[in-house]
């Protein structure tokens, strides 16, 4: 029922997801036996744009789209995110040059990857020392305001990759269907959904899930004081369901924010929620490859039916709702 795109905005870095106590799939790196979040500690983030035109997009147009994408993340309230264009450069977006570089690179070998973000991190603290983003010029690109048939929108993909650059992992708030050996997006409510919208369309607006995720990494105490969280477990026949996708829906605001069960016992936390009653829905991780979200060593249980929790869960302001257990049954 769900399909693939010919194109996937992938994250091709050798990093791990942050541990189960965290609400979102944040990027992390192992330091000894623990995992620390990847994040920039110094702002503005200074970046270069590779001075290379591709058919349909000039380097200055790429710069403008990237500026717009950084501005979208920077507009999330109370985080203090900012970025600064330093200049055009002849170097490619590759790691190891101590510069954050964003540009087009031809990667015909990555036939389903539109873009990718890589990092150099301080393995003691998780601080990002350098991050580079390439957009795969094997594909056709456009900066047209309303999208352009047959071409991928630069700003939409840059917005996704810059989410990674800030330390966010993928969200699974979307539905896809299989198509021609790939997946096609039917609907998504997160820029950080790993499968890109079809060419010719745009996806340039951050959603509640994106904002909650970035706020979880960079949010202030004031943010945590004004929002709340839900924690609990997803179980099947009394045992935990790892890798389940748990969605919290606030009927009063219409906001959807999601997370995963990130431990073998099926524990999850969803933070950054507005106070008030929420509905919880659980579904298997079947709308994209599990490896798009979680480490390959993490066993994901996809053998259960989509289900709702039979209790409304009220999120307290600045606190955590009582622990819930969502019971699912096998398919």
């Amino acid at each position: 029922m769900k399909r693939l795109a010919a194109t996937v905005a992938a994250l091709a870095v050798t990093i791990v997801f942050a541990p189960g106590a965290d609400a979102y799939l944040k990027l992390g790196t192992r330091v000894g036996n623990r995992v620390v979040d990847l994040r920039f500690n110094t702002f503005p983030i200074r970046y270069f744009i590779t001075n290379r035109d591709v058919p349909g997009v000039t380097a200055p147009q790429l710069r403008q789209s990237v500026e717009n994408a950084f501005a979208s993340w920077g507009a999330v309230p109370n985080l203090g995110l900012s970025a600064q264009f330093v200049g055009f450069t002849g170097i490619n977006p590759v790691s190891g040059d101590d510069a954050n570089v964003i540009g087009f690179t031809s990667r015909p070998d990555l036939e389903r990857v539109l873009g990718s973000t890589s990092f150099t991190v301080d393995t003691a603290t998780g601080e990002v020392l350098e991050s580079d983003i390439f957009l795969n010029s094997t594909f056709a690109w456009s900066v047209a305001g309303g999208g352009e048939a047959g071409r991928q929108d630069v700003e939409s993909i840059a917005l996704h990759e810059i989410g990674h650059l800030h330390g966010l992992g993928h969200s699974m708030l979307g539905e896809t269907e299989l198509s021609s050996g790939g997946r096609r997006v039917l609907g998504a409510e997160a820029v950080m959904f790993p499968v890109a919208f079809a060419s010719g369309t745009i996806n340039r607006a951050l959603r509640a899930d994106d904002i909650a995720g970035i706020s979880d990494i960079y949010g202030s105490q004031a943010f945590r004081d004004s929002t709340g969280s839900i924690s609990g477990r997803v179980t099947k026949n009394g045992t935990g369901v790892p890798g389940a996708h748990v969605v919290a829906f606030n009927p009063a605001s219409g906001k959807l924010i999601a997370s995963f069960t990130l431990t073998p016992d099926g524990a999850f936390v969803i933070a950054g929620l507005e106070p008030g009653p929420h509905i919880l829905r659980v579904e298997p991780l079947d709308d994209a490859d599990a490896s798009s979200f979680l480490e390959s060593s993490f066993t994901v249980d996809m053998d259960f039916k989509v289900a709702f929790h039979n209790k409304l869960v009220t999120v307290p302001k600045g606190g955590t709702a009582r622990s819930v257990e969502i019971k699912v049954v096998g398919k």
């Binding site: 309303g146 999208g147 708030l173 979307g174 539905e175 997006v185 039917l186 609907g187 998504a188 409510e189 919208f197 079809a198 369309t201 996806n203 959603r207 969605v247 829906f249 009927p251 009063a252 219409g254 959807l256 509905i279 829905r281 709702f308």
Partner: peptide, 26 residues
């Protein structure tokens, strides 16, 4: 108590109706 739809944005031109993930009647 009101009703609400959990909506996902569909790819498409502006005005494309969203995908309803589920609905709530309170």
């Amino acid at each position: 108590a009101g009703s609400a739809d959990a909506l996902l944005t569909r790819p498409g031109a502006a005005g494309t109706p969203p995908l309803t993930l589920f609905n709530v009647t309170g």
